[in-house]
Write a protein that binds this DNA or RNA. Structure first.
Lengths: 308, 308
DNA sequence: CTCTATAGCACCATCGATGGTGCCAATATA
DNA sequence: TATATTGGCACCATCGATGGTGCTATAGAG
């Protein structure tokens, strides 16, 4: 049934008969038994934080397509940015015979690599880098630098003003991406001869709720809106937009708003929306290159694109 | 290792020792072997058209969460609304031992039920109904009726005007949902004493591109915008919004726009956006009820909510 | 007509987990 | 002390696919 009948010197006549009967009976091979015997499942496992934003859903969708085309069986699991769930999911995928584990935006990619290593299962990091496995990520620093520059250009600054009053909001202080984006944010200021203010960098998590709360607090403490906003993901953007929705969505038009991540509807909100679109197709191409021919534990950075 | 040692009269001392050693060696049970032997994999398969809109991604996310909580191993596959891919994916999931197959928005759910039936694998339809398996869907008719009514209320109609010049756009003429939504659309007109015009119902597929093309053609043939628009999914909405973006996004503010499906950013576009939010949590609750205790091949309809 | 080669197939161990069965020793009961 | 009971474990067939090995009948060589 698996096509090896020629090599096994089965006559064509018999082979055809068997295939015919199998077809009539609706035979479907048992890949679990096959995997058990061959010690090769063809399963590619992926853990991903969530599905419900364009960046991650696009990763999931492209991954499935390419995996299937390469003859693999893709299995994706979303883990809600919960390190514990990430570990459970990783073990679960290993139990189900995954040959390779792709960790997307994992809270602690190295912890997962430690789990898979003894079992001889490869790990590849996507979106967030680790040290125990090859990583494919966006060039966050450059993209953030450019996004910040573009926002600053649109700011209506007074002559001689030394600060921008530009707010960076959202993200997780422990993750590499947020760190690099803050770095790009700060450097873009300094490159323009400006000084970013400490309290204008608000790392309050990615979630919409916490970002909304944080933004609300910021506005009241600052007694007013910042001159511009850098939002660190579309998830956080939901929080910011919610705040504007509640307090007067029209005010969105008066303020340059940059967002690291892209969403087709969000891109059309306000007149001053600038979005960073990460190059998912290219990231996935690199991923499957890595799957096909393993390399060392290096970090590959992919350029992102500015959408205005 | 699977906890049956008590039933098998193994002494606690020995059991502890074995568990200890297994832990030290990083033992992970092989679920494929277990599934083979027990003839029970714990795998729940789901095929879904796409991930990249809020409705489907929210289904995928909730499904995974609930499946894991119920002790299953969820496996989701997106099939791009391609009937051939749907069949391949279904067979693939069966090969990997799925115990139950959930078909979300499947082009031809009955065809899939026919494949799984001989193997004794249950099928449950979600979003789009079938006749060969239980189905859990949104009450499309009622939701469409209400959405249409709301749009009509916002229209600026002349006294004595008998038509609304309200455009229905997007969807697939063969699918049950589109049919029911058109029915609700028409009945809402008639309920108000109005007559919907034939050429104001444009079923041009769900894709953003085809909807944009269709809308563009409609506007030129109609020599102007319709008085209001009913868009049959957020995917189609992308196409409509793209058209507005290219031709002057501000015009969006002058026209009541209803969309069957919800997106947090789209909801804030224009001043007249009305969205139908399908009740995903409730649908998923019903799904797992059905998984736990199989019923007959009936269609369960879930009410949707209007978001303005 | 004998010997060799090969086509064509049957048979079996194996992958890891699982649960039934069998066996021995310790304990309880008469 | 003899018998019955049970605790504690070892052993093995089984799930389905796979590939190695062994056997037989036929074809070809001499």
């Amino acid at each position: 049934m698996n096509g090896t009948w020629k090599r096994r010197r089965i006559s064509e006549k018999l082979a055809e008969k068997v295939l015919e009967v199998a077809h009539q009976h609706g035979y479907i091979p048992n890949r679990q038994a096959s995997a058990l015997r061959k010690n090769r499942s063809g399963v590619l496992g992926m853990i991903i934080p969530v599905y419900d934003n364009r960046y991650f859903s696009s990763i999931a969708q492209t991954f499935e397509k390419l995996a299937r085309e390469a003859g693999f069986f893709p299995t994706i699991t979303c883990t809600q940015r919960d390190p514990e769930l990430e570990e459970i999911a990783a073990r679960s995928l290993m139990s189900y015979g995954a040959e390779c584990l792709i960790c997307v935006g994992a809270t602690d990619p190295d912890a997962i690599a430690q789990i898979t290593k003894p079992a001889g299962i490869r790990t590849i990091n996507l979106d967030l880098p680790g040290t125990q496995a090859p990583s494919i990520i966006t060039d966050n620093y450059t993209a953030s630098f450019e996004l910040t520059k573009t926002i600053i250009e649109r700011l209506d600054l007074d002559d001689g003003q030394r600060t921008t009053d530009l707010l960076f909001i959202g993200g997780n202080g422990n993750d590499h991406n947020t760190q690099q984006r803050v770095k790009g944010f700060v450097d873009a200021h300094e490159d323009t001869g400006l000084i970013p203010q400490d309290n204008f960098i608000q790392i309050c998590g990615y979630e919409a709720d916490s970002t909304e709360t944080c933004f609300s607090r910021f506005v009241s403490e600052n007694s007013g809106l910042p001159n511009g906003i850098f939002v660190n993901s579309t998830i956080s953007l939901e929080g910011v937009i919610n705040w504007f929705h509640k307090t007067g969505i029209h005010r969105l038009n008066n303020i340059p708003l940059g967002c690291f991540d892209w969403d087709p509807f969000a891109a059309l909100l306000g007149k001053n929306m600038i979005m960073t679109r990460q190059n998912v197709p290219e990231m996935m191409r690199m991923l499957f290159k890595e799957i096909a021919s393993p390399s060392s534990n290096e970090v590959t950075q992919i350029k992102a694109e500015l959408v205005m």
